[in-house]
């Protein structure tokens, strides 16, 4: 099932299908390893509910829900 990354629950894993962001943000996501085909896991949510922390390509990355909502992931 495909959904966007900001809808993930803690511990949920998936494979990235598409990155719908634009310009600078899209480029930054790619550079940080958020590319279609990569496996991603939602690791943690900040105490105030935003941003979130994901595990991608063997390291921890934090991003805001706004940015995460452009990442379409197929949940595993």
């Amino acid at each position: 099932m495909e959904k966007n990354l900001s809808e993930f629950k803690i511990g949920e894993k998936g494979i990235i299908r598409k990155v719908d962001a634009l310009g600078k943000i899209k480029r930054r996501l790619f550079d940080m390893g958020i590319t279609p085909g990569a496996t991603i896991m939602l690791k943690k949510v900040s105490p105030l509910g935003d941003p979130i922390e994901v595990t991608i390509r063997g390291y921890e990355l934090s991003l805001r829900r706004d940015e995460a909502s452009s990442v379409i992931v197929e949940a595993l």
């Binding site: 600078k24 943000i25 930054r28 996501l29 940080m32 941003p51 922390e53 390291y59 921890e60 990355l61 934090s62 991003l63 805001r64 940015e67």
Partner: peptide, 8 residues
């Protein structure tokens, strides 16, 4: 500014 940041 985007907040796409490594947590080292």
């Amino acid at each position: 500014p985007p907040f796409i940041m490594e947590l080292p």
